[in-house]
Amino acid sequence: MFSADLFANAVVSGLLLGGFYAAVAIGLAIVFGQLDIVNIAHPAFIIAGSYTAYIFNSTFGFDPVLVGVAAMPVFFAVGVAIYRIYYAAFERTGQESLSGLAFFFGLMFIIEVSLILVYGVDYRLVSAGYATGALSIGFVDLPGRMLVPFLVALALTGLIWLYLSRTFMGRAIQAVAQDRGALQLMGADPIRIKQWAFGIGIATAAVAGALLIIIGPVEPSVGRQYIGRAFAIVVLGGMGSIQGMLIAALLLGVVENMVATFYGPSWAPAVSFGILLLTLAFRPAGLFGR
């Protein structure tokens, strides 16, 4: 029944989960929140990140987080290439809303099917020393497989926030969807800014994927469980606000975990959609929308 330590544990493990959700959503906070590109394939890129970590971990024994970080430039380049195609095929001609959605849907299938063809539908996992241990503070448990992703996700979020708010490129990324013509008048090329931002968004998936496979085993289609969550977090966070996104992610983690603890795990996935609908109905600008 209800008890203080069950409650405290549910809150703490919810926060740890929510931190990880921030890593899942941050790429979308840039790509969807700031560029208005509905990249529903983002979670599929995260799964690709998980498999990258898996491959290097199982073959060479490399640490999954390090593999995730090292893979960022490659994911960045892939992101740039994809934006180029997306721009040339859809955005330039103003067809991005429907055809663009189909494009990302197709991309999601290609990634999933390629992974299935090569690795099958078995669950894959990584081994890392910290993933099996746990830290106990009083009656609260901090399992390493949740704590490490939480800390890495916070670091990633902090770095992206600094980049967006403190650099010329970051400010241009924030401005590009607001008025691209005005951005040209500042001497910036909107297409270059967007492809750079899209590349960064996809690069975060390399890290998020590594975190996902540290938390638990992964198979090619688990990414789908994160589509609703990631979009709900970005909308709740106020479309593109990084601080808002982080708070929304932590909130979702805690609420989901409470629901799972006190009502049963089968309800947890419904939470994000519930939050998404409530946000759209009562506070469409999100909690922290500008």
């Binding site: 400010r171 924030q174 401005a175 607001q178 008025d179 013509g181 005005a182």
Partner: peptide, 9 residues
């Protein structure tokens, strides 16, 4: 014309 500021910045 119209100032074209970035309103949300």
């Amino acid at each position: 014309e119209g100032r074209r500021l970035f309103p949300k910045l």
